[in-house]
Design a protein around this nucleic acid. Structure first.
Lengths: 262, 262
DNA sequence: TGTGCAGTTTCATTATTTGAAACTTGGTTT
DNA sequence: AAACCAAGTTTCAAATAATGAAACTGCACA
């Protein structure tokens, strides 16, 4: 089934093809897409022609392969700049990463998934699309749980319904009941932990970024490894993380994501 | 043959709407797009509905504004990973930026424009016109000229024809003749300079990334400011930059951008 | 209560998309 | 060298989706 509210419409179909190509993570032959596509050969062929002509796909004539095109990178830059928290959060993320010396993640909810929109590594100053654009599961990451915990019930139910509950490690929450208990604890506490739930050896402390009205804008986390740190050790950064999250929330809501007027 | 604008496919029209929205660089009202769009109200309205439903646009019901959606960021991540040099180049760019301590850019040619695909900031970052996904002019940037200089004539002519030759600073080359002379010098020398041609106070040294057959894959540059450095000073990094460019070229061509077999 | 504007819906008309099948191309087998 | 095969490309009548003028809604302001 389509991941997006797949309706009819030629545009939706073409975008489904884009997803298909992007999912491969490598240049791909026409027939490989054809195999996994509901469209007949001629139809798919025409779509890929159009998408290529439009710069959404890049065609390599020597290898006869298609890959996502560079027009996408340009469009995404606009998306990143105008619909993500990243540009607003940037100075705060910078300052936080300087102060704590660990990897910092900034994420937003995209449907039921976590979308990372910015990142600072422990060492290197700035990377961009290397992290921005990556998606991860919501139910077993610090930022994911921090956001889910503050979602209003109807949305939360929808998001939970879409979680895979795959067991990545021995610490992964693998059912709704366990996750909901964890979310209640997070709500009470104000921050979330990742206790090696997604990757062994990786731990983090995460806080949500909330408007004054309590609407979830995103989340931010400080990550480390069990080799270097403990959760208790990471917790000493909490005041700084909170302060950064609040600063981001304040700016974001004044500038770009205001709560609904009442 | 009927003439409705460009009578092209529906997909192309929808993408044109995406461009329109992205071009604003801020959330935008329906009527603002309507003003600049060849489509009648109902048609445009439906397009924006579909694009929103597809996650290509994000609609803010409170403000009644549209912005490029987060689905783009996800798709672009795939594009960046599979059709750009960045993932291959990454370790080399890291090492270079560590070694030289200045801002490093990795760029590719997207049509006649320079598309920045990766970047490492200097230890003390200077706010500057560039970032992954951003585009810039080819005729007045170090990376742009480094790539143009090694383009085969037919492509070069096409690219030059599309340059605006806008005079950004007193040093900008503003016509084809001057640019071609500069490109010849670059070809002879093997590397390009930016002598404050795009932004006052910003200088760089750039080298092309070429396959064994001489095909242009991209370019890499080390940038600084006149306040801190001179071109002669930057030149001492050339051996390192060259080495990095060659390493990237070697890996790229073995792995993903092979020259056409003969 | 009325006027104007921004956004939304309707529906008969029209043009675009569709896809089975035929065709072309380049490489491999007999 | 002829026959074969697989991958990719083109064709064309039928089916479907897009179109856009106009009517409608809801809201702000007079």
């Amino acid at each position: 089934m389509a991941e997006h509210g797949s309706g009819d419409g030629t545009v939706a179909k073409a975008l489904a093809v884009m997803d298909e190509v992007a999912a491969f993570g490598r240049p791909v032959r026409f027939s490989e897409i054809l195999d996994r596509s509901p469209f007949p050969k001629a139809t798919l062929y025409r779509f890929m022609q159009v998408l290529t002509k439009q710069g959404m796909l890049h065609y390599d004539p020597d290898r006869q392969t298609y890959a996502p095109g560079l027009r996408l990178v340009r469009l995404a830059h606009a998306a990143w700049q105008t619909s993500s928290l990243a540009p607003i959060a940037r100075p705060h993320v910078d300052a936080l990463s300087q102060a704590v010396g660990e990897t910092v993640h900034l994420a937003q909810l995209d449907g039921a998934q976590v979308l990372y929109v910015d990142k600072r590594n422990a060492r290197q100053p700035v990377e961009m699309y290397s992290a921005a654009g990556k998606v991860g599961p919501a139910y077993c990451t610090g930022v994911g749980k921090a956001m889910l915990a503050f979602l209003p019930e109807p949305q939360l139910a929808g998001a939970i319904a879409q979680q895979s509950f795959h067991r990545f490690t021995g610490h992964t929450y693998t059912d709704e009941t366990a996750l909901r208990a964890e979310l209640a604890a997070i709500r009470a506490r104000g921050h979330a932990y990742d206790r090696e739930e997604h990757e062994p050896g990786i731990i983090c402390v995460a806080v949500p970024i909330l408007t004054r009205a309590g609407r979830v804008l995103g989340a931010m986390s400080v990550t480390s490894t069990t080799a270097r740190e403990t959760l208790v050790g990471l917790e000493r950064h909490l005041p700084r993380i909170r302060a950064a999250a609040e600063a981001i929330a304040a700016e974001a809501q004044d500038w770009r994501f205001p709560d609904a007027a009442e």
